[in-house]
Design a protein around this nucleic acid. Structure first.
Length: 304
DNA sequence: GCGTCCAGGTCTACC
DNA sequence: GGTAGACCTGGACGC
């Protein structure tokens, strides 16, 4: 089954793939030469499917594999999920206005950067974000890989990411012993149970019904989500004026602008605050600019 | 081979 | 409100 989506001006799928490390985490897989991304998803009917996504001109081409028949309703669901993941509907006019105004930001418009790749659901994004805290990137990939392969739905040689219900049925011991999530284990279990039991309607951040402060309140009240994870999750949900400092990005900033000398977070924020309300996103793009230039193998882009 | 450090932090108790 | 200490894992590094 094939379908396609119309893309807005300045859209470059490759830049979405490079936007952060998500494309290197299961169940995403980067296609050869980084010109496409495949992802295993499970539709609301429970049917798993692998989507191969590539760009041809101003259209995003989607090929669904692993399923015989796809209903019209499922086609619409796939279109909606792909649009949400690849940010095809995201309005970045304000960001691009800054890129036109400031010469050092002009590259953003040239490569169509700024659309940050998301998982199919806010739940999956939040689980993965908790798995990035206080550990190396390699450990994040291991934890997410174990979650996907042990609890997700199999399709061919791949698995979808587990649903909240799949994760809620496990024990803290499982997350410690099998996933090796350490102290994050109770956080993952609590999040899954709150979502599965209907205590936390996390997908509301995706449907446009929440104001910025409501998105902040929703994520900030999840155990395991501190300032770093909050800033990153908000960036995934169109709130671009928040900073997400971590040891990697502050070191990168020090290297770039202060000869490697560490500076306070406040000093960094002062440099970008003029770009309101895109200061958090522009900080991220400024630090990750080299990723968009690299020619070497994809795996090395997100390892440090 | 072994010990130590620390990485894309967060929470809690205490002051 | 600010801060110290505890918390899991695994890879890098020095010895």
């Amino acid at each position: 089954m094939k379908l396609s989506l119309r893309l807005p001006p300045h859209y470059h799928l490759r830049s979405v793939i490079l936007s952060h490390g998500w494309s290197a985490l299961e169940p995403f897989r980067v296609m050869p030469r980084r010109d496409g991304l495949s992802v295993a998803i499970r539709m609301s009917t429970g049917k798993p499917v692998v989507l191969l996504c590539t760009q041809t001109g101003r259209r995003l081409q989607i090929k669904a594999e692993g399923t015989d028949a796809v209903t019209e309703g499922e086609r619409e669901e796939i279109r909606g999920m792909v649009a949400a993941m690849f940010r095809t509907d995201e309005n970045l006019d304000g960001l691009y206005a800054w890129a036109r105004r400031k010469k050092r930001l002009s590259w953003i418009l040239a490569v169509g950067a700024g659309r940050i790749l998301r998982a199919p659901t806010a739940f999956e994004d939040t689980v993965k974000m908790i798995c990035t805290t206080n550990c190396s990137w390699s450990l994040t990939t291991l934890m997410v890989g174990r979650l996907t392969n042990s609890l997700g739905t199999a399709i061919g040689d791949r698995h979808t990411f587990p649903s909240a219900a799949d994760m809620a049925n496990q024990t803290e011991r499982f997350y410690r012993r099998e996933i090796k999530a350490g102290y994050r284990s109770p956080y993952l279990l609590e999040l899954a149970r709150r979502v599965a039991y209907g205590d936390l309607h996390i997908e509301r951040v995706r449907n446009g019904e929440l104001a910025e402060q409501e998105k902040i309140d929703l994520f900030a009240n999840i155990m395991g989500v501190g300032p770093y994870a909050l800033g990153n999750l908000l960036r995934l949900h169109s709130v671009y004026d928040r900073y997400a400092h971590d040891s990697w990005i502050t070191a990168e900033y020090a290297k770039r602008y202060h000869d490697g000398r560490k500076v306070s977070e406040r000093t960094i924020e002062r440099r970008y605050e003029a770009f309101s309300p895109y200061q958090g996103l522009i900080y991220w793009l400024d630090m990750t600019k080299p990723w968009y230039r690299k020619k070497h193998d994809f795996d090395s882009d997100f390892t440090s």
